[in-house]
């Protein structure tokens, strides 16, 4: 019996605590088993947030260019940049996704079944369909641009592709690529993600559109192409989308309430507060106001694009911290905060 324990025993009429391990100290209020996380975090590495970003850009660019076509806005440079961008994102996306698999050689098993309740399944099918359609659309663009050679059989065949019709047809699938990433992470047991099931998809879509508009305006500026009215439209849409994105992030934070804490942790705050809120929303918004100028617009685009990437990393990293925190999960899975079948909202 140690000196301290003997003193305690004398003071308390001979009663002694039978355990003295700090982790089982009765004064401790935290619950759980030696702080071991009760759920496991996703193992996803950098490829996943980068895919979320790139997929969002593809979806947003497609939305903008399709609406431009529907409204009869004829700017060949915009349509060309959009179609090649979407093709690029839809080539990179599956590469990143397959790269992250534990067994990449089995990627095709994703297309073995279609499960509407599994956002990972619908996402795989959406990327597959959107990628195929954007491949066809871009082929038509390449034929029109003369990239496939002059008058040969391939060119004549590809020129049969109804590009505008396919653009409209692929719009819902493209939008799903942009928003479903948010639904994918919220259909998990991770408090930070699951709590925000209502706004996660919309926020990802709005952020995707904001990065997409920035990308288009950046490309058109750097290549000195695009009509003046296109640039003007892009700026107007950018400002409105950034506002919507800011509103959705605010709504998400309110909804996440105390489970949003990881976003403000030392590890994630630089990405979320610095990269997303200040660098990706406030700064570009301020730059886009006032007189339009090329350098200002380019800087705003770069900032918004970087902010979108920071946002994806912040959400994924925040989710990891949230999953590793027993207190967060236990409080989430003990009260009324966790989504229940009977909940409407």
């Amino acid at each position: 019996m140690s000196e301290r324990t003997r003193d305690q025993a004398q003071q308390s009429n001979g009663s002694v605590e039978t355990s003295h391990h700090p982790a089982t100290d009765p004064e401790r209020k935290d619950k759980g088993y030696y702080g071991i996380p009760p759920i496991k975090h996703a193992h996803w590495t950098w490829q996943i947030p980068v895919y979320f970003w790139i997929g969002g850009i593809g979806a947003g660019v497609h939305l903008f260019s399709t609406i431009a076509q529907i409204l009869g806005h004829k700017d060949e440079d915009l349509i060309r940049a959009s179609r090649y961008t979407v093709l690029g994102t839809m080539i990179l996306s599956p590469v990143l996704l397959i790269w992250d698999l534990g067994r990449p050689e089995r990627f095709y098993n994703m297309l073995r079944v279609l499960k509407l309740r599994s956002p990972m399944s619908t996402q795989s099918w959406s990327v597959f369909a959107f990628g195929t359609l954007s491949g066809l659309i871009s082929a038509r663009q390449a034929a029109d641009d003369g990239l496939l050679g002059d008058d040969n059989l391939l060119v004549r065949l590809v020129k049969l592709v109804p590009a505008r019709f396919l653009s409209i047809l692929s719009l819902p699938v493209g939008l799903n690529v942009g928003s479903n990433t948010g639904n994918l992470i919220s259909a998990t047991s991770v408090p930070l993600w699951a709590r925000n099931w209502l706004f996660m998809g919309p926020t990802f879509l709005a952020s995707g559109l904001s990065t997409a508009l920035s990308w288009l305006s950046l490309v058109l500026h750097l290549t000195h192409s695009g009509e003046k009215k296109t640039m003007h439209t892009l700026h107007r849409a950018e400002k409105a989308t950034i506002l919507i994105e800011a509103g959705l992030i605010a709504a998400s934070l309110i909804r996440m309430s105390k489970w949003s804490k990881p976003l403000f942790s030392r590890e994630v705050a630089p990405l979320f507060v610095g990269g997303t809120l200040i660098g990706g929303i406030l700064a570009p918004f301020a730059l886009l106001f006032g007189k339009e100028s090329r350098p200002k617009s380019i800087l705003a685009s770069v900032l918004a694009l970087a902010g979108g990437l920071a946002f994806r990393f912040a959400i994924i990293k925040g989710g990891r911290i949230s999953a590793d925190d027993p207190e967060a999960y236990f409080t989430f899975a003990s009260g009324d905060s966790a989504p229940q079948p009977e909940d409407k909202v």
């Binding site: 009760p38 599994s118 047991s189 989504p339």
Partner: peptide, 12 residues
């Protein structure tokens, strides 16, 4: 163990 775990796909 969680007291009231939930089916995450309910809200898809």
């Amino acid at each position: 163990l969680p007291r009231h775990p939930f089916l995450p796909q309910e809200k898809v």
